[in-house]
Write a protein that binds this DNA or RNA. Structure first.
Lengths: 248, 248
DNA sequence: ACCTGAACACCGTTCAAGT
DNA sequence: ACCTGAACACCGTTCAAGT
């Protein structure tokens, strides 16, 4: 029984005749940077749980497997997103790559720039904090060698000693990390793509916690801005002390 | 055709005859708390990427599906782990649930207790920081109502005003979060279950970053302990100022 | 009452194959 | 050179079924 069962509809009509016609969406060649950029905006939309190689591929009109031409794997993609975020600071016109009106102004601008970035990418920022750094000197959230270089050489140019500059770097990073992570966390960090059910429960059995119950009003107030400004001022004071101390 | 097809090997022998014999491994009834505890130690071993409902089930000699009797889902399990961690602070003999030798001692002990906990659970601690809090007053890493109650009522008993206590709470949490997250991150936070390849590359093209290259020695030094102690001292000073200011 | 088997809809990633 | 299809080994979760 060697019957020709290959009797399916062979669409030879379209194949070669209609050449020279562009596909509907002009085939952008899809490089690594557009993948990372798209991954970031997608992550901001759907949260970490929603970012999937397959879904990201679909977004770029491509099968998931095509992404592996440009990115070694999902982990590397996440790292690339973090780097993309941090390097994006150079594009912020309020942020200076080196001091112009003194180091205090330099650090003020940088701190506020990172804060704006964090608030613009609430769902992505936790990644900046939790991905393991590639080197011990790349402390989150300043996780790009470029910026560490900018930070340190900036302070050195302003008369800091090596030790003072490094100490300032340490203080600056843990200050930023603590404040910003807390801030984006309370902004409902990674609720993800799930339906957010409005919790209308007034006080879920807060009767055993009288102080929390009494102060829940004050505790819920959003003082993020003042907290940030005040703590930043105090940090700058401490860095000043540190600077003169290392010079004396 | 109503034949009795139930002719499989009916093991009626063991069923009732040998009653009063325990199965080889004493069948612990598997409650929620042992699941959470096991999940935590497992997480500490394999990292967040390695924690799987199926693998956790296998660890407890049970199919993954059995876990759903005690835990609504994986997300809830992660939240439960976080709570378990924080409430574990009460078991630390160095930590006091309320002030005994003044509020500074109280906060010192609490801060060091949280630090020990973070360092004992390097892989799990980032969860404490990144899970979205259930209420705006539950700021990481002090994410259990019990502890917020302990913290606030402790300070109030020491003469703090409501405002000063709340402000101290805010300062204390962001200080802890920033320092500890940074510390566990540099301890190679969530490398996960992957093989950690020793990176023997000396300086991966650090030639464009002269300052980082020159200071990489200082930058790599581990000053975690001093940083923590100094910053904690400064925090306590700020809280003191805050306390008297609200009283005057 | 407690656990299991089988199934569903999804993952990340590989590799040979298409154009 | 770039993309795809099909496949593999895993996920979380459901539900009817077993004991």
């Amino acid at each position: 029984m060697v019957e020709d069962t290959d009797a399916g509809p062979t669409p030879d009509a379209d194949a070669e005749i209609v050449a020279g016609r562009k596909p509907p969406s002009a085939r952008v060649p899809l490089d690594r940077d557009t993948i990372v950029a798209e991954a970031l905006t997608f992550l901001d939309e759907v949260g970490p749980g929603g970012l999937t190689m397959r879904r990201l591929g679909a977004r770029l009109n491509v099968e998931a497997m095509s992404l592996y031409r440009y990115v070694p794997g999902k982990e590397d993609l996440l790292d690339a997103i973090v780097e993309h975020l941090i390097r994006g600071l150079y594009a912020d016109p309020e942020v200076l790559a080196e001091p112009r009106d003194g180091w205090q102004d330099f650090l003020q601008r940088l701190a506020h720039g990172v804060r704006r970035m964090a608030l613009r990418h609430v769902k992505a920022f936790p990644l900046v904090a939790s991905r393991p750094p590639e080197a011990p000197w790349l402390r989150p959230p300043l996780r790009s060698v470029d910026w560490v270089e900018s930070f340190l050489s900036g302070l050195l140019a302003e008369g800091f000693t090596d030790e003072a500059a490094v100490a300032a770097y340490r203080g600056f990073t843990s200050f930023l990390l603590g404040h910003l992570l807390l801030e984006v966390a309370t902004h409902g960090a990674d609720v993800g793509p799930l339906d957010v059910v409005e919790d209308t429960t007034p006080d879920p059995s807060l009767e055993d916690f009288p102080t929390v119950a009494r102060l829940s009003g004050e505790l819920s107030e959003d003082h993020a801005v003042e907290e940030f400004e005040i703590a930043l001022e105090q940090l700058l004071e401490r860095i000043t002390a540190l600077k003169v101390e290392h010079q004396g």
